[in-house]
């Protein structure tokens, strides 16, 4: 089984590194980026299955990031990992297949929910 490629984007290093550690332990191929620009660079050169995006980023915000990423890799799936309690999915994102089930609230008590969601997305099922 080919490894699943996941991109984790978060400006908080602690969050980022912990999520990567967990996913690596779960056997995923994980790359991290600390900003949206950096992430796009990486996406431009590497193929990913799923991207786990934080919404509050220093440069471009999470919504734009996802859209741009989608442009670069239309097959790429996305999960939103945000600390914002009042985040609403914009129309553009729902157009590309995202729903509320793609949103995960920080703090995650159990990162296992990410794993479940990644696996579902990769299988082609909606979450």
């Amino acid at each position: 089984m080919p490894p699943i490629h996941v991109l984790v984007v978060d400006d908080e290093d602690v969050v980022c590194s912990n999520v990567i550690a967990f996913l690596e332990d779960e056997g995923f191929d994980v790359v991290s980026a600390s900003s949206g620009e950096k992430a796009l660079d990486i996406i431009a050169s590497k193929k990913f299955d799923v991207g786990i995006m934080d919404m509050r980023l220093p440069g471009i915000d999470g919504n734009t990031l996802i859209l741009k990423s989608h442009e670069l890799q239309p097959d790429m799936k996305f999960l939103i990992h945000t600390g914002s309690t009042n985040y609403n999915l914009p129309r553009a994102l729902t157009d590309i297949g995202l729903s509320e089930n793609n949103i995960f609230q920080k703090p995650l008590i159990d990162m296992g929910v990410l794993v479940d969601a990644i696996q579902k997305l990769v299988k082609g099922n909606n979450i």
Binding site: V14, S84, T85, K106, L108
Partner: peptide
């Protein structure tokens, strides 16, 4: 405040879990 706290909390919890 929530958002400000959630992040560090997230770090703590994620780290502990790992």
């Amino acid at each position: 405040m929530a958002h400000e706290i959630n992040n560090p909390l997230g770090g703590i919890l994620l780290g502990a879990q790992n």
